[in-house]
Write a protein that binds this DNA or RNA. Structure first.
Lengths: 348, 348
DNA sequence: TACAGTGCGTGAATCGTTTCAACGTCGAAT
DNA sequence: ATTCGACGTTGAAACGATTCACGCACTGTA
């Protein structure tokens, strides 16, 4: 008994099954699939009928094994739930689509181990390149990857080495913008809710913070309260504020949060504690995500060109691939922009 | 000349290269990789050294080709930039991790063609199952997939057929909750900014809307202004409000948006037009995403158990796989919950 | 001394696709 | 009548890992 529909238990049909059914060789089936114009009409039709009848679907593993490579690149971002990164990813996809590449997207959740695991997974699958927002200080993994022939572009962080390209936004400047703004409003004691200093963005924004304080003639020891949180999201922000308000000593009059999700949590915690914004506590975030302007107290934030960031990183990666040895590694850096709103400036 | 580091141009080392270098057979290398205890210490060490020296990385395609299957399932959601779906995905991942499955996540962007493309991609890669939030009315693709031995679970939509499981939230009830609330506040002319009726959630919430109106003795023809937008995001919401305000006739006093992203855009547009919320226009959203409570005007919304939704869908898929033919398909449905805030009720 | 048992290691077959040299056929050109 | 190229098709090799029946060497026992 044989019917055109298969039961679940059957193994999925291969090109050989199709060839048998159509009465041709496997090479011909492959030609129908890949070079249809080199096959006569009648043969092609017979093969297509067989494909339809058997519900044949190509086996990607076999194709890749033979081809040795796939038109795919991987990307690892810090937090896929952060709108900043989804916007960046959209930019990446848009550039990749133009060259018919596909994207494997993962989130390291700021965990270097997860990052390493995904890198290995990508490599085992034979991606041509990766875009990474590193979650750890060390680039060893990435350098090794590059040495094994997989192109690497750093995403949203400036490359510390000459032979790996990067696309970033000037985080030092961004951090400084936030603090300069707060200082100009008269704040002289400012909290900085920051992530772990293994993350480059956190290091850089902090450097900008310190530079801006120094530029204003303020002593960080007195003017700055640093709070380090575990993850750069709303929970982290709430945690940061709770610790800030519990602490002894002079309470700061302003807080700069390392990103908008963190600021969102901070705002929530501040409200829960009945702290008036911006009168008792000014708040500045970072990223200017889609909802920043729509909050109870519209959030002052540092805006970054997200889509362009992702697009450019993908562009660099693809060009690096196509240009080969002649490619010049580069560090592209965009400039951030401060958007002042009510969470810091009542008159805004 | 031979060194331990390879130039970029070299082909990546295979298990055969490792075997040669270690002076053993390929079978032994495979044993070291997969059954290390069946190999003598000295041989194992030699192989491990060779692996290290050559920087050998397994070829996933070859493994899969031989194994025939991978511990992977795919998921396709409507919009990966929507916090609702990232929370659902997190739930999926958490359940999959327990069984050491990995997730391939994609966004159809509500485009049936994209959805079909990803389904095919998943199938070619040999995933064991897929979770899908369908973007089109037809389930033909999914039924065919199921017939080819790939398990299917519908995500965030109730299955219309008996032989495909689904995990959903009662969208009819959710839509009704929103309207009952608005009616109880005295609104008798209500706008409904909804997505295309190819999307099940849109159909169901609309059905709830109509049921609630009927239940309140209101004639939809007079009480309801329906506006259909192209995509369920902030841009769609802005567009919806712009069209609503431009329209002739009685302006509604309330608007129900099909989700919170849409509501966010609606709020933005309303503010731009200087419409007071909730006095001139009450607003209700859907999903209760993380920032809903933190908006300028805190958003009344219909809350859903996101994490649980994803977790349960993955659980159903894995159980379906392990239980085989004895598995009973089921339609799991959670109940939504209305969260009243200032965007609809000034006293909230 | 022979034999069974055990522990390690071997090497060929296998998965499904792509590629390519080679082949047969036919019509056109010489 | 022969040669030639074009066209369509074939069939085997190759990709890299896994598996498994088998072989070899050694130990302990009869």
């Amino acid at each position: 008994m044989s019917t055109t529909t298969r039961g679940r238990a059957d193994r999925r049909p291969s090109i050989t099954d199709v060839a048998k059914r159509a009465g041709v060789s496997v090479g011909t089936v492959s030609n129908v699939l890949n070079r249809p114009d080199q096959v006569s009409d009648s043969t092609r039709d017979r093969v297509l009928v067989a494909i339809e009848e058997l519900q044949f679907v190509r086996n990607a593993s076999a194709r890749q094994l033979r081809a040795g490579t796939i038109q795919t690149v991987g990307a690892i971002v810090l937090d896929i739930a952060n709108p900043f990164f989804t916007e960046v990813a959209r930019g990446v996809e848009d550039r990749l689509a133009a060259d018919e590449y596909t994207l494997m997207l993962s989130s390291s959740d700021e965990d270097p181990e997860r990052e390493a695991r995904y890198l290995r997974l990508f490599e085992e699958h034979g991606v041509q390149g990766v875009m990474v927002t590193p979650s750890a200080g060390s680039l060893d993994n990435l350098l090794a990857l590059r040495d094994r022939g997989i192109d690497v572009v750093l995403l949203d962080t400036t490359s510390p080495v000459d032979d790996i390209s990067s696309v970033a936004v000037d985080d030092v400047r961004g951090g400084a913008l936030a603090i300069e703004h707060l200082v100009s409003l008269g704040h002289t004691r400012i909290a900085f809710i920051n992530g772990p200093l293994t993350i480059k963005q956190c290091i850089d924004r902090r450097e900008g913070v310190l530079a801006a304080l120094a530029g204003a003639g303020l002593d960080p020891a007195a003017a700055l309260v640093e709070i380090t949180i575990g993850s750069l999201n709303a929970e982290g922000g709430e945690d940061g504020i709770n610790r800030l308000l519990e602490a002894d000593g002079d309470r700061p009059t302003a807080v700069f949060c390392v990103n908008d999700l963190t600021a969102l949590g901070a705002l929530r915690a501040l409200r829960a504690h009945g702290v008036a914004i911006p009168d008792e506590m000014a708040v500045v975030g970072y990223d200017d995500v889609v909802f920043a302007s729509m909050l109870t107290v519209p959030l002052t934030s540092v805006r970054q060109p997200t889509h362009q960031l992702g697009w450019t990183a993908a562009d660099l990666l693809l060009r690096q691939r196509s240009e080969g040895a002649t490619f010049q590694h580069q560090r592209i850096q965009f400039q951030p922009e401060l958007v002042v709103r009510g969470s810091s400036d009542p008159s805004a």
